[in-house]
């Protein structure tokens, strides 16, 4: 899938119905025999698009992995494992799960959408793989500079979004919480296509390394 333009938003919103999310999480497994660091690779075949603040970009869906964002104070014991998945990487605040081949998709997805859990598929910048990216559940919106603070707040309220923070020094650029990772992508794309704001983009979590 090269999700472009309006079709992406429609498709991604549809995906949020649950079963369709499974399509994103599992649907491209046949074409994605890995595509991640440290593995022999086969090109990923599923991609989605997002606006990066200046132009539309494409990211590739790794159908075999899911990132879970864990609340900082949450203990492992308090946390429920994702069925049909193996914990691949555990970092403070982030867990990366590998989905079992042929797993019960609907069960996995319904658990994945349980309250207080922010889940995202794993994405890569290249169809060949590379660093993992995931959707944090937030979006970044830059408003028209002539908008008053009251106008901005009214817009956020109309959209039923939750303000997380405002970026330092960046004119009228707000971080807003949406919900699950994919929902954030869909909302960012829909807002971007609506044309009311300077830009709207999903906030990405991305692997980084100490040197």
């Amino acid at each position: 899938m090269d999700g472009s333009g309006e079709g992406v938003g429609v498709r991604l919103l549809y995906l949020l119905s649950g079963l369709a999310l499974a399509v994103v999480l599992y649907g491209c497994q046949a074409g994605a025999a890995g595509g991640v660091q440290g593995e022999s690779t086969q090109a990923l075949t599923e991609s989605v698009r997002y606006f990066d603040g200046t132009r539309w970009r494409e990211v590739w869906v790794n159908g075999r992995e899911v990132v879970e964002f864990v609340q900082p104070t949450q203990t492992r014991a308090a946390h429920m494992a994702i069925p049909a998945a193996t914990l691949l990487v555990e970092l403070p605040g982030v867990r990366i799960w590998r989905l079992h081949s042929g797993a019960d998709e609907s069960t996995a997805v319904s658990r994945a959408l349980a309250p207080a859990r922010i889940l995202s598929p794993v994405f890569h910048l290249s169809s060949a793989g590379g660093s993992r990216l995931a959707l944090s559940g937030n979006i970044v919106v830059r408003f028209q500079p002539e908008w008053s603070a009251a106008q901005v707040q009214a817009w956020i309220a109309r959209q039923k979004l939750v303000q997380v923070t405002v970026l330092n020094g960046a004119a009228a650029t707000h971080v807003l919480h949406v919900g699950s990772g994919l929902e954030a992508l869909a909302r960012a794309n829909a807002i971007q296509q609506g044309g009311e704001v300077v830009y709207a983009m999903p906030e990405w979590w991305r692997e980084a390394g100490r040197r």
């Binding site: 403070p92 660093s131 923070t165 970026l167 990405w204 692997e207 040197r211």
Partner: peptide, 30 residues
């Protein structure tokens, strides 16, 4: 958390900016 949120990287480059003389970054993507 082993990764970086794109909004937080902006924050890390600009937090206390009026006073920060030097920002040391011994890290990179991927």
């Amino acid at each position: 958390n082993g990764g970086i949120n794109s909004a937080e990287i902006h924050d890390a480059m600009t937090r206390n900016v009026a006073e920060v003389a030097i920002s040391n970054n011994s890290w990179g993507y991927g």
